[in-house]
Write a protein that binds this DNA or RNA. Structure first.
Length: 506
RNA sequence: GCGCCCGUAGCUCAGUGGACAGAGCGGCGGACUUCUAAUCCGCGGGUCGGAGGUUCGAAUCCUCCCGGGCGCACCA
């Protein structure tokens, strides 16, 4: 069982009170260390006044050794005030899990594929696609932390109209000519022209290396052209019909918003929708319990398409999940810039990382909820980087590293309390104890922004503790060193989830 | 017209049923012979877009309205 002191306490109280309940941290210190609203929830079913139920639960809770006293407050909250012994035991439990604290929350392990970025290799990755990677990778890391097995995949089109225009643009540059109508422009086209061979794999290699620098690692790549080879065998398994010379999927009958063309009327060539079918089969037949698509909000119209394909082919649509995120808007000195790869005025991920650094870039792009549009003022990005909260969190980690460097070798392991705990110490322990719930909620919601928000709170509580109390050579040194170590691990775990480094020195 | 998302402090945003709504930035004022001041403390700042409804309780759930973004291809 992974360490989760709050859950354990809730379970103990639930057993004593005879009702399932959850504990929350009240906003006000005078409302106790933890509180539960379970009496309010039970009032209807039990047909008793909530305060009466609350009083019974409070009495039962007072029988526990961890509980110093209780209060029934407001309409029927039960407020719990805990003994120092509980804090020492909680910290001990957290430390007992070592660097793994916060992990292993999954009840049963799944094989998960996260397919992300998947931008066609017609140019370097723009910041807008980087959000896809930052978001998808953060969700992937949350799955991993919970104990699931995750593979990250990149899917791209290596044939078709876009790629033809891209290749033609590079060829034109090699001949010293202007790019064709609707072709691609930009310095990177000339860079590719200077090299030999098909520019598509060259471009893909550059994209991969940008993403590696961004700390998004792909386990595999899939090409549309190879998947299309399976279509003759797969299309007959779908619910289809002929109309105006084209082959249509009757996807609207299976939960999609409309029917989709699979084979074009002109030459019976497959659309990308047809390749989607082959790709979905390819994913699910590889044995993934869950196939996750990470898509920008401009693709929200296709949200139901994948589930419809799964249904038509007889797969459980629950295995297919589409995560949407809103777009990134770039402004320059307050003015909106429209981004177009073809015009070559995009802000590329590499430039963005050069400007503000990898850590700030990752933090910036997962800091906000996926449903929230991100506004980035490129002019302010560099300046703002020094004010980015990511450094505040990293600084807490580095500060602790400094303390641990100066600590005597034999100082660890004991959590003996020399004197009563100070409020800052109790607050910090409670904060660290939140990690399992924070990670679980972020995963359930597919909302990794909860992690950086929590990390700021941890750093906050630590910096305050640090300011008020000396660790080394204090009466409370043993306990405080343990507290520092646990805090450092929690921050390191949070930073890892976001894709940010945890520095030993700053 | 239809669909998805958003509207919370001057700005950028957390907060998906609980007790007087939070943070960062910006503004003002304090704290370093000390384990890292990239820190800490204080002050100022809000009809949670609007109106109804559900509930003991709503920023949060439902309905309508008003703003904004993004879609609605035999492009990907």
């Amino acid at each position: 069982m992974p360490a989760d002191p709050v859950k354990a306490l809730a379970a103990a109280i639930a057993a004593a009170a005879g009702a399932e309940l959850e504990l929350e941290r009240p906003g006000e210190a005078e409302h106790g260390d933890y509180a539960t609203n379970v009496a309010l929830r039970l009032a209807g079913a039990r047909r008793k006044p909530p305060r009466e139920i609350a009083a019974e639960i409070a009495t039962a809770a007072e029988g526990l050794p961890a509980v110093e006293r209780t209060e029934v407050a407001g309409p029927g909250f039960v407020n719990l005030f805990l003994r120092d012994e509980w804090f020492a035991a909680a910290l001990s439990e957290i430390l007992g899990d070592g660097a793994a604290y916060g992990s292993g929350g999954a009840e049963r392990q799944e094989r998960v594929q996260v397919e992300m970025v998947s931008a066609n290799p017609t140019g370097p990755i723009p910041v807008s696609s980087a959000r896809n990677g930052a978001y998808g990778d953060a969700v992937a890391r949350l799955f991993e932390l919970a104990g699931h097995e995750v593979e990250r995949e990149y899917y791209y089109n290596d044939s078709g109209g876009q790629m033809d225009r891209f290749r033609a643009s590079v060829e034109a540059a090699r001949r010293g000519e202007e790019p064709p109508e609707d072709g691609y422009k930009g310095a990177y086209i000339n860079d590719l022209a200077a090299l030999k061979g098909d520019p598509v794999p060259l471009m893909l290699k550059e994209i991969e290396s940008s993403l590696e620098r961004f700390r998004v690692h792909f386990d595999s790549f899939r090409r549309q052209s190879e998947l299309e080879l399976r279509l003759p065998e797969l299309l007959p398994r779908l619910d289809t019909y002929e109309k105006e010379g084209a082959l249509w999927a009757r996807s609207s009958a299976h939960g999609d918003d409309e029917d989709r063309v699979l084979l074009r009327s002109e030459d019976r060539s497959p659309t990308y929708r047809a390749a989607d079918v082959a790709y979905l089969v390819d994913k699910l037949d590889r044995g993934f319990d869950r196939a996750i698509y990470v898509l920008g909000a401009d693709h929200h119209g296709t949200r139901n398409w994948y589930a419809a394909v799964a249904r038509m082919l007889g797969y459980d649509p629950e295995r297919v999940e589409v995560l949407l995120y809103q777009l990134v808007h770039l402004t320059k000195g307050g003015e909106q810039t429209k981004m177009s790869k073809r015009r070559g005025d995009v802000v590329f991920l590499d430039d963005f990382m050069d400007e503000i650094g990898v850590d700030a870039a990752r933090w910036y792009l997962v800091n906000r909820g996926p449903d929230q549009t991100i506004e980035i003022d490129i002019d302010l990005a560099a300046e703002r980087s020094q004010k980015n909260p990511v450094y505040y969190v990293q600084y807490a980690h580095a500060r602790i590293a400094g303390i641990l460097r100066n600590a005597p070798d034999n100082a660890g392991n004991s959590l003996l309390l020399a004197k009563p705990l100070a409020p800052a110490e109790r607050e910090l322990v409670k904060r660290l104890a939140e990690l399992p719930a924070v990670a679980a909620e972020a995963l359930t919601k597919r909302g990794p922004q909860g992690v950086p928000t929590y990390a700021i709170r941890v750093a906050d509580d630590f910096h305050r503790f640090y300011h008020e109390h000396r660790v080394l050579e204090s009466e409370q040194q043993a306990f405080r060193l343990g507290l520092c170590l646990a805090t450092q691990r929690v921050i390191a775990t949070c930073l890892h989830l976001v894709g940010v480094e945890a520095p030993e020195r700053m």
